[in-house]
Design a binder for these strands. Structure first.
Length: 276
DNA sequence: TCGAATGTTGCGAA
DNA sequence: TTTCGCAACATTCG
């Protein structure tokens, strides 16, 4: 599903196609796509404005306008498509922006969880998000301090967008496996050495996935129905029962914080700091 | 046939 | 502060 690498892939693909164009109109094809705002009010706020930049923050796609910002969240099944006017329409289109130059930006979302909104001031959104894991300002030392300040289990903590922005179920499982940390470990019990290892694992797994244009596990697509290629590089996610690539032990799948969680019971021991 | 599982966020409640 | 369960949805799986 769209996590940081998938959203980054979408932004890199779509940005050049729409930046500099003007929004000439907006149509909601499903009444809640702009919730809690009404589609009419959203349309009034963005119509006539030029798209200055097209960027990502966490899992949000942000369109900087002349005045204010459009934010788009793909949630689970959202996709952005650019179509030339007159092109045949797709199923599950929930909203469309009419752009200058006879071109449209379409929001496709089978499960209807995705949302589009407008903000005058981006701070309202930014304040709810933790650090960007790939920014150089995000340091191993900082992550260690953050972990040591929490009593929560490490997996739900990493999924919390106010703790760190952009990670979802797939990359949390992958990063914890690569760092050899059990997903149910109390965050404050993670040694500084392991915290630094986790920092490296997070950056490596995200960077590598962006390079391969994300993970297509079920539905993620970008552009003209293209898939990401990182799925082949997944070491633990979706591999329950398969041998651990590190030690050969069967990969386990359990439920932590209501989320399917994959790990190796041998490589990722919950207690004890002796397994490196 | 049908209930369970899927996965992200936000909400209220414990 | 943190955890828990649910709701928002459609589709696929067993």
């Amino acid at each position: 599903m769209p996590e940081l690498p998938e959203v980054e892939t979408v932004v890199r693909h779509i940005g050049p196609l729409v930046s500099g164009r003007s929004i000439e109109g907006f149509t909601a094809h499903w009444h809640k796509v702009t919730a809690p705002e009404t589609a009419e009010r959203f349309a009034a706020q963005v119509t006539g404005q030029r798209i200055e930049t097209f960027v990502r923050r966490g899992k949000f796609i942000l369109l900087q306008l002349e005045h204010g910002w459009v934010h788009i969240h793909l949630r689970m099944t959202g996709q952005l498509l650019v179509a030339d006017n007159g092109q045949k329409s797709n199923a599950h289109i929930r909203a469309s922006f009419d752009l200058s130059g006879m071109r449209s930006l379409l929001f496709k979302d089978t499960r209807k969880f995705g949302r589009i909104g407008y903000l005058n001031d981006l701070a309202i959104l930014m304040d709810k998000l933790g650090p960007e894991p790939l920014e150089s300002s995000f340091t191993p030392h900082q992550l260690a301090n953050m972990l040591h300040g929490s009593r929560r289990q490490v997996k739900p903590l990493l999924l919390d967008q106010s703790f760190i922005a952009g990670l979802g179920n797939i990359y949390v499982d992958e990063a914890l496996f690569r760092a050899r940390i059990h997903p149910a470990t109390a965050a404050r019990a993670i040694s500084t050495v392991k915290a630094h290892r986790l920092h490296r694992a997070i950056q490596e797994v995200l960077t590598e996935s962006i390079r391969l244009k994300g993970t297509t596990f079920r539905s993620f697509r970008f552009g003209a129905d293209q898939s990401g290629e990182f799925r082949q590089s997944l070491q633990i996610f979706g591999r329950m029962g398969e041998p651990c690539p590190n030690c050969g032990t069967k990969i386990s799948k359990i439920r932590i914080a209501q989320r399917g969680t994959h790990f190796c019971g041998r490589c990722q021991r919950k207690i004890g700091a002796h397994n490196s």
